[in-house]
Design a protein around this nucleic acid. Structure first.
Lengths: 253, 253
DNA sequence: AATGGACGTTGCATGACATGCAACGACCGA
DNA sequence: TCGGTCGTTGCATGTCATGCAACGTCCATT
C-alpha cells in the first residue's frame, strides 16, 4: 500500500470532524507542515477539500458529487425504489433501504411519509449498527466467524434502556433474526421509535439489502407496527424476486 | 502536488462512471497494473472503493458517509446566511450563527451590528461555552450522559456576577433551555451585553446550529431585546425548514 | 483432459519523487 | 515597532512508489 496516498486519505475523515488549518492537519498526520500542504493541495485540485475564507480546509463539493454518483450506480437501489414508494403509500410511514459494506451499514434510500419529495438528508449516514433492525438482518447473514469477529469489534452505545448492551446479547439477537427471517427495533435507538424490517435476497439467497418501516409510537403502537410485518416482508420478497431476475418489474402489481 | 495521490484520486471519478476491473483502471491511468493494484488497495483500506463479488471495483461506503458529513457541515452556513442578513436588516443588531463541535461551540457566521457599538467576536472562535445563549441551546440537545460529562469537564469562569457559577447550575439552566426551546444570556459574558437565541433543527429534529441576536444595553434594554424573540425564533424555524428540505430557498423554483 | 489466454498478485532493483529542513513573507496582537 | 504564528517555497537527501518479469488461478476453447 502507498504511504503517500494513505496519508492523504487520512486527511478526509479528519476534516469530516470539522474544518482544520494546515498546522492541525500536519500534527494529526504526524508529518511536516510542508508535506501536509502538498497533500492538501493535491486533494484540493481534485476538489476533495475546500479552502474556506479563513484559509482552513474542509471537505469539498467533489466528494459529494462522487458519492451521489456512487449511490446511483447501486442497482439494488434503483430496483427497490418504486417498491419503497408503494409501501409508503400503503402504510404512510417512513421507509428505509440499507446495505452492508465492510463493517458498516448505510442507509441508501429513504421515503419520508410526510413529505412527497425524496429526501437525501439522512441517506449515506452509517446506521446505529448494534440496534437498527436493518443492521441486524444484514449482519445476521454473515458467515459465523465474520459475525463473531465483527460483534467483538463493535461498540455498544446505550442509546436507550433497550439498546443491545454487549456482544453476546447481540450475537443471540442475530441468531434469532437469522431464524425468523425478519427483525425489529423497539425503542433501541430512540425511545419512542419502532421499526420492523425484512431482508432482500439475491439469486443465491444471500441478503444483499434490508428494508424497514419506522414510526414513532405516538402515531402507532409497536403492536400496530408489527401488524405491518406481512406487508413489509411481501414488499421485500417482491424486490428480491425482481433483483434476482425471477420476476420482472411489470409482473408485480 | 503529489503524483501518487493525484493518480489515486483520479481513480475515483473513473469508478463513478461504473465498476471497473484492475486492467481497465491501469489503462485509464496509464500506469502498470501493479501500480494500479497498490493504489486501489490503499483506497480500499480507507473504504473509498469496494470490491464487489466479481472482483471489480466500485466506489465505497466510506465515500458516501464522508460526503454526508461534508454536506451537513457545508450546508447550514450557506443556507442560514441570507436569513441572518435579513434579520440584521430588520433589527439592526449583531447576529451570530454557531455550531457545536467536539466539546466546543464555534461561531461559524456573523453579521455585524449597524450600530457603532459592536461586541467583540470572531468567526471560528470558541464561544464562552458556559454562558453564551447559543452554547446553551447546542449543549441542551446533547444526550444526557454527554451533557453531564461535558458539564463536569468544563471550567466556569466568572466573567461577571451573572455568569453560570458551576456544573449543577449549568445543567439546570440547560434543562430549562431544553424545555422552553430558546435561550438568553443576560450579562453573563460581558456585563453590558445581552443575547437572545433560538435553535436550528435538522430533519430529524436534532439541533444542528443555533443563532442569536446580541446587543449592548446602552442601545436596547434586555426587555426590548426579548421582544425580538418571536422574530428570532421565526428566522431560526425558516432556516430549519430550508435546511431539512421542507421548504426551498426564495427565488429557486 | 490439455492448452492458451486473461487476469490478479508478488518480489525485486532502480530512480523518480515525496519528504523534512530551513528560510522567507505575511499577518496579527502586544 | 517588535515578536510570534502561520502558510509557503527551494533544495538536498534517501525513502518509497514504480515497472518489470514471473507465478498462480480461473475460464474458454480445442
Amino acid at each position: 500500500m502507498s504511504q503517500t496516498v494513505d496519508r492523504a486519505l487520512s486527511i478526509l475523515p479528519l476534516l469530516a470532524e470539522g474544518p482544520a488549518d494546515l498546522g492541525q492537519v500536519a500534527d494529526r498526520l504526524g508529518v511536516h507542515k510542508s508535506t501536509a500542504l502538498r497533500l492538501l493541495r493535491t486533494l484540493h485540485e481534485h476538489g476533495m477539500v475546500y479552502r474556506q475564507s479563513d484559509q482552513r480546509y474542509r471537505l469539498g463539493a467533489r466528494l459529494i458529487a462522487l458519492a451521489q454518483e456512487a449511490m446511483e450506480n447501486l442497482d439494488i437501489r434503483e430496483i427497490a425504489h418504486p417498491h419503497l414508494v408503494r409501501l409508503n403509500e400503503q402504510c404512510g410511514h417512513t421507509v428505509h433501504l440499507a446495505v452492508y459494506e465492510e463493517d458498516e451499514v448505510l442507509y441508501i434510500d429513504k421515503v419520508e411519509s410526510r413529505y412527497p419529495v425524496r429526501m437525501y438528508s439522512r441517506i449515506g449516514k452509517p446506521v446505529a449498527i448494534t440496534v437498527a433492525a436493518v443492521a441486524k438482518l444484514l449482519l445476521a447473514d454473515l458467515p459465523e466467524h465474520e459475525r463473531r469477529a465483527l460483534a467483538d469489534k463493535l461498540d455498544y452505545p446505550l442509546y436507550t434502556a433497550r439498546s443491545t448492551p454487549n456482544a453476546p446479547a447481540f450475537l443471540r439477537e442475530l441468531e434469532k433474526v437469522r431464524e425468523q427471517g425478519w427483525a425489529t427495533d423497539l425503542g433501541g435507538h430512540e425511545e419512542s421509535i419502532n421499526c420492523v424490517a425484512a431482508p432482500i435476497r439475491g439469486a443465491d439467497g444471500r441478503v444483499v439489502a434490508a428494508m424497514s418501516v419506522s414510526a414513532p409510537n405516538v402515531v402507532v403502537t409497536a403492536d400496530e407496527l408489527l401488524s405491518l410485518l406481512p406487508l413489509v416482508r411481501r414488499t421485500a420478497d417482491d424486490i428480491s424476486g425482481e433483483y434476482s431476475g425471477r420476476t420482472s418489474a411489470k409482473g408485480t402489481v
